[in-house]
Design a protein around this nucleic acid. Structure first.
Length: 733
DNA sequence: AGTGTCAGGATTTTT
DNA sequence: TCCTGACACT
């Protein structure tokens, strides 16, 4: 093995230290743009280089498939024989790997041939269960129950261990559904995403020898984006690291923005308490952003109390001050941003160097309208991903059913899609038969046809479907995946269905199906492909065309752009009102971290803006500037906030350079504004104490309290309620 | 089975 | 305002 595979050139002393320290637990605390992943990959290469063979000595865990792919490539280029001793992947993909080997040896209720149930299937399952329990779908929807189940699984809680106070939520309903849901999953040999890790933990608990085996195998464990781990992932890590205690976690507590889906920031904050011998290395030299941008972000994040603390220093110098701009309304904001984008483009800057990052999806509407009107090419991320699209999911379901005819969820998805005369009644019959006999749906259909339980039209329809299925199973052996898919879509009438469809998107859908065929061609087997799909909700392949990026801040984490726009920094949008209202400061702190993440995406120039009125849900809503704006140190700003207020008060839509866009409101907006603007106004909406209001469901009432985004209203017939301003119509006095 | 109508809701989103 | 899901009607 060559002795300079870990080329340390380009690593600063702190990074070098993080790479070379190879003894005991280590926490690498690194801010945005300090080269975390780079350090981690160098460290892996260093271990590979220093410790010769036995295979499987390193376990390297990342959070997303994208990150895993990136790391794999980097490591491969650093260390020639990386593939040999290394397990690298996401928590879930590695958990699958373990279960595929050992699931049968423990009493988990599944065997090694288990199928992975994705979120769409989870929804469908829960919906069925709720129906069986005769619950009013208006009152209880899967979306109400599933977050509980996910939350519990993320904390390694099985139904019977859910603590009493949480059982009481929804009157214990969620627990009941959880139990039924779990039984259903096991009956079909299925595992949802939460189960993958939960079963690993159970497996380790019931089979200590399996745990020991992996504890011995993985001498070194490395984790990227540690601040995003949830309780069960952390438990999994702790178990595996128990013997060698060579756990290296890399992360930034200030970038923990996934608390709402179970990430546990305490994992990183309390690392040193759990590993008292741990060494902490802070990486504070920032290669991405200018000092002004860092100072601005640091000023904001300093208002959080739950943090370990870092001082980032830019290697790139002071750079431009942060642009701040206020506008009369969202339209003016959008067109000013577009003007600036075009101006910079004419100065030679690529569109792809500019990005607009937003807090919530709906903010993009106005921006998209403006971009389109000005013919600026743009890409919107965060819509439906490739593998989540209806036509793709259907096609994949066909393949799943061909691969494993016991895949009941796939069966249910496509048995009557496109319609082939198998209605709800026949499907229910099959389902009941299958469940009471403990066989798969496909199996049930066969038997029911033989026994003539199914007759007439339905029987004929099932017959021809079975014939198709049989044919496909034979063809599977001789055809490539892509060809098989083509034949299936043809035979099942999917192509015909979309060709005949009058829907606008029909053509795109056909194109997508073509894309799926080429995706299939990249996999060695149908099985490999299906496993990939189950685990990966693939990020859309980036197009080569030069275009501006619009994405949510969440989606932008880990990315960087030269020029970044952050519109709609307004109370009511950012921070999101739901986070503000919760009594603890936790969610507000997460919003603040989100602001920090957003700001630190910019390398060269950052432009933050707000509007006083925003077109939302088809209504004009008055908004105030975000509290985060006041937290940005004035020294980092091009124009102080106070000055912007002055100019705005003087009737100007004003901002810093490139943002002077006087405008007049459209006729409709003016009318709406007038009706919504009484003398003494609630800053965010326009209501006053004592004002009469109307609500779609609760009727007439009187405002008795004003809060940031809510009114307290005494309704004439429904008593006192606190209601979001969005749903209130103010009446003229 | 497919289309039309009405009510209710409207952060963030990976595996 | 615009999307989704439930239900009723043809």
């Amino acid at each position: 093995m060559s002795n300079n595979t870990t080329d340390t050139a380009g690593l600063n002393p702190a990074q070098l230290q993080a790479v070379q320290h190879l003894d005991g637990p280590l926490l690498v605390l690194a801010g945005a743009g300090t080269g975390k992943t780079r350090v981690l990959t160098h460290r892996v290469a260093r271990i590979l280089e220093q410790t010769s063979t036995p295979a499987y000595r390193i376990l390297c865990v990342t959070f997303t498939n994208k990150a895993a792919r990136e790391m794999r490539e980097r490591i491969a280029s650093l260390a020639a024989d990386a593939a040999e001793g290394l397990w690298l992947g996401t928590f879930h993909s590695l958990a699958v790997r373990v279960l595929r080997k050992h699931a049968s040896s423990a009493e988990l209720g599944i065997d090694t041939n288990f199928l992975i149930v994705d979120s769409d299937d989870q929804h469908r399952l829960v919906r069925q269960i709720l129906q069986e329990m005769h619950l009013d779908p208006k009152e209880v929807r899967p979306g109400k129950i599933l977050p509980f189940i996910h939350g519990w699984k993320d904390r390694a809680l099985e139904p019977e261990r859910v603590p009493p106070e949480e059982r009481r939520e929804l009157n214990g309903l969620a627990v009941d559904v959880y139990e039924r849901y779990q039984r259903r999953l096991q009956a079909m040999n299925g595992c949802d995403f939460g189960d993958l890790l939960l079963y690993n933990i159970k497996l380790f608990a019931h089979n200590p020898e399996v745990l020991q085996h992996y504890q011995q195998r993985f001498r070194y464990i490395l984790v990227d984006e540690y601040q995003d781990t949830n309780m069960i992932q952390n438990l999994w890590l702790s178990l595996l690291a128990h013997q060698h205690r060579q756990l290296c976690c890399v992360g930034d507590d200030d970038q923990s923005i996934y608390g709402w889906r179970g990430a546990e920031i305490r994992n990183i904050l309390e690392f040193q308490q759990r590993f008292t011998e741990a060494k902490v290395i802070k990486l504070e030299e920032n290669y991405r952003s200018s000092q002004n941008i860092l100072d601005g972000a640091a000023g904001v994040i300093a208002h959080n109390s739950d943090r370990l603390g870092k001082d980032l220093v830019a290697t790139r110098g002071a750079g431009a001050a942060i642009g701040l701009a206020g506008f009369r309304d969202s339209r003016a904001e959008a067109s000013a941003i577009c003007d600036t984008i075009i101006k910079r483009h004419f100065q030679g800057l690529a569109y792809s160097a500019q990005a607009i990052l937003i807090r919530a999806g709906h903010v993009s509407q106005m921006l998209e309208t403006s971009l389109a009107a000005m013919r600026i090419p743009y890409r919107m991320y965060g819509g439906l991903r490739f593998y989540e699209r209806e036509e793709i999911r259907d096609a994949v379901a066909y393949l799943r059913l061909i691969h494993r005819s016991e895949d009941d969820l796939a069966f249910e998805r496509i048995i009557n899609k496109p319609t082939r005369g198998i209605g709800a009644t026949s499907q229910n019959k099959v389902r009941q038969y299958a469940e009471s006999n403990g066989v798969s749906r496909m199996n049930a259909v066969q038997v029911m046809l033989e026994d003539q339980v199914l007759t007439g039209r339905a029987a004929a329809a099932f017959e021809s479907f079975l014939a198709l299925h049989r044919g496909w199973q034979e063809r599977k052996e001789v055809l490539s995946g892509a060809d098989l898919l083509h034949e299936v879509l043809q035979g099942a009438g999917v192509f015909d269905f979309w060709r005949a469809s009058s829907k606008l998107e029909a053509e795109t859908k056909l194109e997508n199906l073509g894309e799926l065929q080429s995706a299939l061609a990249e996999f060695p087997s149908l099985e490999a492909f299906l496993e990939h799909v189950a685990l990966v909700m693939d990020d859309d392949r980036t197009s080569t065309k030069d275009s501006v990026t619009i994405m949510t801040i969440h989606a932008a984490k880990g990315l960087e752009f030269d020029y970044v726009f952050l519109p709609a920094w307004e109370e009511g949008i950012f921070p999101n009102p739901r986070s503000v209202d919760e009594d603890d400061s936790k969610s507000l702190e997460e919003e603040r971290r989100l602001a920090y993440v957003a700001m630190t995406r910019a390398k060269t120039r950052l432009d933050i803006s707000f509007a006083r009125e925003r077109l939302m849900h088809g209504q004009v809503k008055a908004t105030g500037p975000s509290r985060f704006l006041r937290e940005i140190p004035e020294s980092a700003l091009e124009t102080p906030l106070a000055k912007i207020f002055e100019k705005m008060a003087a009737g100007w839509a004003y901002g810093s350079s490139g943002y002077k866009t006087p405008r007049t409101a459209t006729a409709t907006e003016t009318t709406l504004l007038r009706t919504n603007t009484p003398a003494v106004r609630n800053v965010t909406h326009g209501g006053t104490m004592g004002q009469r209001v109307q609500h779609a469901r609760f009727g007439m009432g009187t405002i008795t309290g004003l809060e940031s985004q809510y009114y307290v209203i005494e309704f004439d017939e429904h008593g006192q309620k606190t209601i979001s301003v969005d749903f209130i119509t103010l009446l003229q006095t």
